[in-house]
Design a protein around this nucleic acid. Structure first.
Lengths: 175, 175
DNA sequence: CCTAGCATGTAATACGTTACATGATTCA
DNA sequence: TGAATCATGTAACGTATTACATGCTAGG
């Protein structure tokens, strides 16, 4: 991996884009990177603390009324760390896909149960495609790389739905 | 998830297919499920112990010459647990894809570095497709669901290569 | 007044990899 | 004889989720 912890990568990137608090970071990941790079409060807040100790971010306690919040900004070293990370030529990739695992063991299932498994997976791709399209419609057209990521998500899900629809048809005819 | 731990799922499934030792399980996952459901020795051996305590597997110490090995078989309860798991209508899905995360932050990169990121990813899809095809050629035609998983892997990688080739072309023309 | 949202944080627990330790056997 | 492969296992460490605890504010 990188010297930056997994959660640090998404935190620093989002701070670079202008986000300011742990809460904002969590909300943003939940509607954007969640599908390929999740982050939870239990990682975000401790990580922000560690990043400040390491000198990559600086924080300021803000008091607007009785609401206390801590806003973060990148230090020059933090910005450099983001750029260096983005330029590293190795990318971590990890997938845990229980649907594929069940399909791998599909010969342990009867024909109907196998078809049902495949049908359910097709439906899941279709649902995800719809969800991603809804996000796209809410955000409007995005002409930058983050828009490409969303388009990738939509088209991947559409491709997967078609692939599993085809498998489903083949299994039914094998029936 | 399921009541079965993640690693228990692949272990029990492989025992059901006839594998017998922790070592065999590790070797098999390394050339098959690794890409979507990994397992390491540090999980496999302790998990086999736990599964025996739970009564899902039974083990036997075998001594052929001076080689000591412990072979495992499923108990009736173990077989039932596998079937129940396969029939559960929920599948866990988790992805950590650093390439997509970097692309998401692509506006922080200059044009050439962004194109290079996309080019590298296309190359990674192509390499993976080749690797999966090589596995397929080594194993020969497989007319069961595990063969479908391999075909899915190959075609997904081919699709991804094409998708990123297209993005690369669009980025170059945006130049 | 009550609910949703803003906002921060920790503790318990689960899950995972890596590196290390050990030793036999097979085959070139 | 030396490398690869068979074979089992643990310790240290990193990373993650979940649930919980706390309290303010805005709007219906």
């Amino acid at each position: 991996m990188s010297t930056l912890s997994p959660t640090a990568r998404v935190i620093l990137g989002l701070l670079h884009l202008g986000l300011r608090t742990g809460y904002e970071i969590k909300n943003t990941t939940d509607i954007s990177t969640k599908y390929f790079w999740g982050a939870s409060y239990g990682q975000i807040y401790p990580e922000l603390k560690r990043l400040e100790e390491a000198g990559l971010v600086r924080s300021k306690e803000e008091q607007s009324g009785a609401v206390r919040r801590r806003t973060y900004t990148l230090t020059p070293r933090g910005k450099r760390a983001v750029r260096e990370w983005l330029l590293e030529p190795r990318e971590f990739f990890d997938l845990r896909d229980e649907g594929l695992l069940k399909l791998f063991f599909g010969e342990l299932l009867g024909h109907d149960d196998l078809v049902e498994l495949v049908r359910r997976r097709r439906a899941w791709y279709e649902l995800s495609a719809r969800e991603f399209r809804a996000i796209g419609e809410e955000l409007g057209p995005i002409d930058d790389p983050s828009g490409d990521v969303l388009r990738y998500g939509i088209e991947w899900m559409e491709w997967g739905a078609a692939w599993f629809a085809d498998l489903e048809a083949r299994l039914r005819s094998r029936g």
